[in-house]
Structure formats: C-alpha cells, structure tokens
C-alpha cells in the first residue's frame, strides 16, 4: 500500500470507529423512542424488537392524560429556575469580573466548592429548613433548591465571559453619563446575550430534569414534575413500560430541542463551568 492509500484507509477506519462509538452512545435514546411506540403486548412478549413490531400511539394517549399536569409543573419549575439563576447570577458575575472587591476570592472559591457539594446533603437539610419556613410542597421551595445546580455554574460561566468584554465599552457608557446600573442593564447585558442564553438554557434543563429535590422537598402529590411522574410508574412490580417510555420521551424533548437550537453554545458551556482557569 502506498502512503496515501494507507492514510485514506486510516481515515475511514476512524470514521467507522466513531460510528460504533456513536451507536453505543445513541442506542439508549433510540431504544426509548422505539419502545414508546411499541404495544404493551410486544413489550411483555419477552423479545426485544429493534424496530416497533406493531407501532401504536396508545402509550402517548395514556401518558398525555396522566402526565399533562406534570409537564406543566416541570415547565414552571424549569422556567423558574432559569429566572432565578439569571437574576442572581448575571449581576454577581459582572461584579466578580469587573469590580475589584475584596470578597471576590472568597466568593469565587465558595462557588467552585458549591459545585462539589452533593445534592443529597443539601436535600436532607433543606427539607427540614423548608418545614420551618413553610416552603415544603411549594414552587418557590423547589425552585430555590434547584438553583443549587444552576447558580454556581451560571456565575462561573458568565464571569469567564465578562472577562472577554472590553472595559472601554463600559468606560464609554460612563463617560456619556450612564450610571452603574444603566451601564449594566443597557450595555453589558445586551452584549452578553449569548452567554446569558446559554446559562438560562442550562438552568432550565436543571430545573426540568431535577429529580432529587422533587423527591425530597415535595412531599405529596399536589406538585409533581415529570421526573417524579416517571419514577412513580416504577413503584409497582409490573412496570407499564409503554407508559414509562412515552413519558421518558416527553422528558427528553426539551433536551433535544436545546441540542438543536443551542448546539454551538452547549459544548463550550458545559466545559466552561468546570475549568475556569
């Protein structure tokens, strides 16, 4: 083989290897979509079908009536988490990047460590703390708890972004007589639009996909997000796999939409929160 041929073969080998990797990565997602269209009879036949044996929408019909309220709940929680994250994180990230404050080191260190703290530790305490302040079983309580995923990440990502913002822009605004607040709302936030959207998307996904706080700080069936709805299906000995899979597909939809819409932000956003240095 010539050198050229060998390198061409090598390239196609790489393509093949990454296709195998992708197949393994994507198969579970494929399987859940297929199973959601499968009839109950097929699902319990004891044979797995890689393609729906008898496609049906029955599972979605079951689930739409049972989970519609849960989807609304999850949307409220997701949007609430995104709103909370933005209100807290955008100004904080601005302060931590553009103002010389003595607490910067302490606050940034705390945020890095906050990302490490296991949610079950927070959930156990928050459950009892929420009892005193009557936040158990409320949207504000759940959203405050879900913010623990989103807020440290959002501040660190936005801070990294604000570093790249030239100071001249803010300086010019102040020379023109803008106050600190006006500079922030009219100049800085619009310029940071893409980063703000990225953290909002992640905060939404955090709130939408949260399970541990829904399981702990919600203590009853009055508020039930879709993640909890899926979990309650599993409780029994005979799981209604069709319903579980259709609910799972619904729970995946926002992630899929985000992947398509915000593709270019996601990869950078995911890594930026981890390695700030």
């Amino acid at each position: 083989m010539t050198r050229l041929q060998r390198s061409r073969t090598l390239r196609w080998l790489c393509t093949f290897a990454s296709l195998v990797a992708l197949a393994i990565v994507l198969f579970p997602v494929y399987a859940v979509v297929v199973a959601s269209f499968e009839s109950t009879y097929t699902l319990f036949s004891g044979t797995y079908h890689f393609w729906p044996a008898s496609p049906t929408l029955a599972n979605y019909r079951t689930v739409l009536s049972a989970q519609a309220a849960n989807v609304v709940t999850s949307l409220i929680v997701g949007l609430g988490t995104a709103a909370l994250a933005l209100v807290v994180a955008v100004p904080a990230a601005y302060a931590l990047s553009k103002y010389r404050l003595r607490v910067t080191v302490v606050v940034v260190s705390s945020l890095l460590i906050a990302q490490i703290v296991p949610s079950i530790v927070l959930a156990t305490s928050l459950f009892i703390i929420f009892h005193w302040v009557h936040l158990v079983n409320t949207y504000p309580g759940l959203i405050l708890a879900d913010g623990t995923y989103a807020i440290p990440f959002a501040i660190l990502v936005l801070r990294a972004f604000f570093f790249s913002l030239p100071n001249e822009v803010m300086h010019a605004a102040k020379v023109d007589g803008a106050s600190e607040w006006q500079t922030f709302t009219r100049i800085v936030v619009p310029l940071a639009r893409s980063a703000v959207i990225t953290v909002a998307v992640f905060a939404f996904l955090n709130g939408w996909g949260d399970f541990i706080f829904a399981l702990t700080v919600l203590n009853g069936a009055t508020i039930q997000p879709i993640t909890l709805g899926i979990y309650t299906y599993l409780g029994n000995y005979s799981t209604d796999w069709g319903a579980v899979m259709a609910s799972a597909v619904i729970a995946i939809v926002p992630a899929a939409v985000m992947l398509i819409l915000a593709q270019r932000y996601i990869a950078s956003g995911l890594t930026a929160g981890s390695v700030v240095g």
């Binding site: 992708l22 994507l26 997602v29 859940v32 949260d210 899926i230 729970a251 995946i252 593709q263 995911l270």
Partner: peptide
C-alpha cells in the same frame, strides 16, 4: 457534537 447527548438527558430518565 452528538457524543454529548447522554449528558443532556434527565438523570432519572
């Protein structure tokens, strides 16, 4: 771009 898919699913799912 597709390899990050597992990351975006809710963990319980």
């Amino acid at each position: 771009s597709l390899v990050i898919v597992p990351w975006l699913l809710p963990l319980i799912v």
